[in-house]
């Protein structure tokens, strides 16, 4: 039986901004690092700005939970990078954290009315789920590193795992092996062209293909749950939308 608070928390990313809105820029940032690595100076200003922005957005944690947690996570990673003297990465993460904090405030403002109404009313009906319907999706705070595993991408109307996706999945499998207490929700997505229903089936087929691949690499199937969102949660271009996302939980 879930409790109302975690339900809200898990529902938020579904209803507003998918987790990978954060993960994608981060993933792109990783690619940019080598380009920016030549002699950057300590980004204390950027870090300060990010800290202020995240502090200032703390009020939005209730009505834009996912967005705010993402900003916090980015700031924490920026601080880690700073301590590791990876200044270029720290600056980029700090700047991303600042942008994300602003985004959290905006989403919270947009959602305020609805979020209050939902908290008071709708969740009563959601929360009456019997035990066999509670699929244990409540995500606790410890799982905020769900942004660790980046997405893999697919061709149009295809669920074939290509070379590039294989390389990413091999890394994910290694991480999951190293973090044996973690379970993962594999979310299948499509681009927003075509039939909603057919795309739901396609998204699920992508998620299933990824689960099968990870299973072959030795990740126990019980640790992996699949879900398809079809074309419902686009994050960018068609190429970026045809993806499988990973959400970690304990």
């Amino acid at each position: 039986m879930g409790t109302p608070r975690p339900l809200l928390r898990t529902l938020t990313p579904i209803a507003t901004v998918p987790p990978m809105t954060v993960a994608r820029p981060l993933w792109l940032l990783l690619l940019l690092i080598p380009l920016a690595a030549c002699g950057p100076k300590a980004p204390t200003d950027a870090l300060d700005n990010a800290r202020n922005a995240v502090d200032g957005a703390a009020d939005s944690s209730r009505c834009a939970e996912a967005e705010f947690r993402a900003a916090e996570s980015l700031l924490r990673q920026a601080e880690e990078a700073y301590e590791n003297r990876d200044f270029a990465r720290a600056r980029q993460l700090a700047e991303a954290a600042e942008v994300q904090a602003a985004r959290a405030r905006r989403v919270a403002e947009e959602n305020l009315e609805d979020c209050e109404r939902v908290e008071s009313a709708t969740f009563d009906t959601v929360d009456d789920a019997d035990d066999d319907h509670d699929r244990g999706w409540a995500i606790d705070d410890a799982s905020l590193d769900r942004y660790t595993l980046g997405p893999v991408h697919f061709a149009f109307d295809s669920y074939a795992i290509e070379e590039e996706a294989r390389a990413i999945l091999d890394q994910h499998a290694q991480w999951l092996e190293d973090n044996a207490d973690r379970r993962v929700i594999i979310q299948g997505h499509t681009d927003d062209r075509g039939s909603s229903e057919y795309n739901l089936a396609l998204g699920e087929r992508r998620a299933r293909a990824v689960r099968t691949y990870l299973d072959r690499l030795g990740i126990a199937e019980e640790r992996m749950t699949i879900i398809s969102f079809g074309m419902e949660m686009p994050v960018g271009t068609h190429d970026e939308n045809r993806r499988v996302d990973f959400v970690l939980r304990q």
């Binding site: 529902l11 938020t12 579904i14 209803a15 507003t16 939902v118 959601v126 699929r135 229903e197 969102f229």
Partner: peptide, 28 residues
């Protein structure tokens, strides 16, 4: 529907009620 989740693919059911798929319980 009036939740904050995804609700998709409506259809007409018995008695003029609407059937649909909802992610409100984290599964379609």
């Amino acid at each position: 529907t009036s939740n904050r989740s995804l609700n998709i693919l409506p259809a007409w059911g018995p008695g003029g009620d609407v059937m649909y798929t909802s992610y409100v319980n984290f599964n379609p």
